[in-house]
């Protein structure tokens, strides 16, 4: 039996289950909060920062990731305010310039209202979302890949740069990687990253607002339906 708590997201009163995150509760009610690193069956680590919301408490507001924020009684959450959307657009801009070679990331950036990224394209092909690392660790208990290095040098790597025996080549890491979904015009060459934005017309439905989820195929596995 779930213990329920009442909270308000974007003015809608919803009933959350104690122990679940704000993001999970919102998705269950069809309130779309853009997200990338979140996966229903994995521990949330708040890596991509896309799911930021405004948590209003005692008249003060605090922007935090909804995937790591547990529901509480009487919570007031703003997931789509001007401020949150602005911050989220900036995060999406950073993500798309870091790794433009992915339709999933291009789509998310477009939906978050990016029009012309102000940052230099790095084309690193990894946004350190950690989906691969966590799937390997939590789904398969293989611990074959992990984050190595710190700061700018942080990257995903095998221990000692060699494929360990625990890797059974299940390729879950590849399947779950946002980079596995190539842009519509084919993979980008290294150093030639660009912001696509071609499907802007598709997402500009009459009531379309940046941050809304129109639930097209936002890269298989990256949609807002809350299912895998």
């Amino acid at each position: 039996m779930h213990q329920n708590v009442d909270l308000v997201i974007d003015g809608s009163k919803i009933s959350g289950r104690r122990g679940e995150t704000v993001l999970d509760a919102a998705l269950r009610y069809g309130i779309c909060i853009p997200h990338l690193c979140h996966m229903p069956t994995l521990t949330d680590i708040g890596a991509c920062r896309l799911c930021i919301v405004d948590h209003i408490k005692n008249g003060r507001s605090k922007v935090t990731t909804s995937c790591t924020l547990l529901v509480q009684e009487g919570m007031v959450i703003d997931a789509n305010s001007e401020r949150v959307r602005g911050l989220r657009r900036n995060i999406a801009e950073l993500l798309v310039t870091q790794a433009p070679n992915s339709r999933a990331i291009q789509d998310i950036a477009l939906r978050c209202g990016v029009t012309e990224p102000r940052y230099e394209f790095r084309s690193d092909d990894c946004v350190l979302c950690g989906r691969c690392v966590r799937a390997c660790k939590e789904h398969y208990q293989a611990h074959a890949i992990g984050f190595v290095g710190r700061g700018q040098e942080r990257h995903v790597e095998y221990p000692f740069r060699e494929k360990p025996e625990s890797c059974i080549m299940c390729r879950a890491c590849v399947t779950l990687c946002p980079m596995s979904i190539t842009p519509c015009d084919g993979p980008m060459k290294s150093g030639e990253g660009y912001f696509c934005g071609k499907c802007a017309s598709l997402t500009q439905a009459p009531q379309y607002e940046a941050g809304d989820c129109t639930r097209c195929d936002l890269g298989e596995g990256f949609d807002c339906s809350g299912h895998l």
């Binding site: 660790k137 890949i145 992990g146 984050f147 710190r150 221990p159 360990p164």
Partner: peptide
């Protein structure tokens, strides 16, 4: 502790 975890900590 998995080798990956030890390696990660040693590397960090």
């Amino acid at each position: 502790v998995p080798v990956m975890e030890v390696y990660r900590v040693a590397n960090f």
